[in-house]
């Protein structure tokens, strides 16, 4: 954690979406990663919520702008709009609820349909602290992840196990992909001009904050 900060200085800005069934712990994963907090009594997410954290990967400061989405099917019209400009996604299931794992297929399909084809995806089995209630075997999920070229981690937002690692692995994967391919997702997302976008969804290096403020234009 040393050398990292939560400030504005960054080299890259990655937009990431958190998706998965209702009640699997998406919001708490986000608050654990961005604020090191866990809320036993958090309310349901309506629409989307947002948080960021900047971490360092291979000497570069990368700001992860993470959009936490409502899990209920009915919100799909609103939440899928956020897939389009995302460069990374985490599909979350609850290891104690097999239905939430089975639905990952559905989530993956929806992501492929709405997001950029180069989007990096991780699969997260959350609530690993409830191992005694486990309904989804780790190996099964790992195999599924491998077949579909997804990163895989089991996490516990409650006791913070693997949460940082899961996000970090995804962010690193995105970074390596872009530094290898020098992708410019600006062009790609330009095809989806209607998609709501944050200030800088691009994978191109972010301008420094001063520049941004003075021009009122982020990229």
């Amino acid at each position: 954690m040393q050398g990292e900060d939560y400030g504005y200085d960054y080299d890259f800005l990655f937009k990431i979406v958190l998706i998965g069934d209702s009640g699997v712990g998406k919001s708490n994963l986000l608050s654990r990663f961005t604020a090191n907090e866990f809320n036993l009594d958090s309310k349901t997410t309506i629409g989307v919520e947002f948080a960021t954290r900047t971490i360092e990967v291979e000497g570069k400061k990368i700001k992860a702008q993470i959009w936490d989405t409502a899990g209920q099917e009915r919100y799909r019209a609103i939440t899928t709009a956020y897939y389009r400009a995302a460069v990374g996604a985490l599909i979350v299931y609850d290891i104690t609820k097999s239905s939430s794992y089975e639905n990952c297929n559905h989530w993956l399909a929806e992501l492929k349909q709405n997001a950029d084809e180069n989007v990096a995806v991780g699969l997260i089995g959350n609530k690993s602290d409830l191992d005694h209630k486990r309904a989804v075997p780790t190996d099964e999920a790992r195999n599924y992840a491998q077949e579909n070229q997804l990163l895989f981690t089991e996490t516990s937002a409650l006791n913070a196990d693997n949460v940082d690692e899961a996000f970090r692995a995804l962010i690193t994967a995105i970074y390596q992909m872009i530094s290898k391919n020098q992708l410019d997702l600006n062009d790609a997302s330009g095809n989806n001009a209607n998609a709501p976008k944050g200030p800088t969804i691009s994978l191109t290096p972010a301008p420094n904050e001063k520049h941004k403020k003075s021009t009122n234009n982020c990229c």
């Binding site: 309506i46 629409g47 989307v48 947002f50 609103i78 709009a81 709501p196 976008k197 944050g198 200030p199 009122n216 234009n217 982020c218």
Partner: peptide
């Protein structure tokens, strides 16, 4: 607009609840 803030990003919950 200049900050690329969209109303959809914050007001869905205002309406929904």
């Amino acid at each position: 607009e200049s900050e690329h803030v969209e109303f959809l990003q914050f007001s869905v919950r205002w309406m929904n609840c």
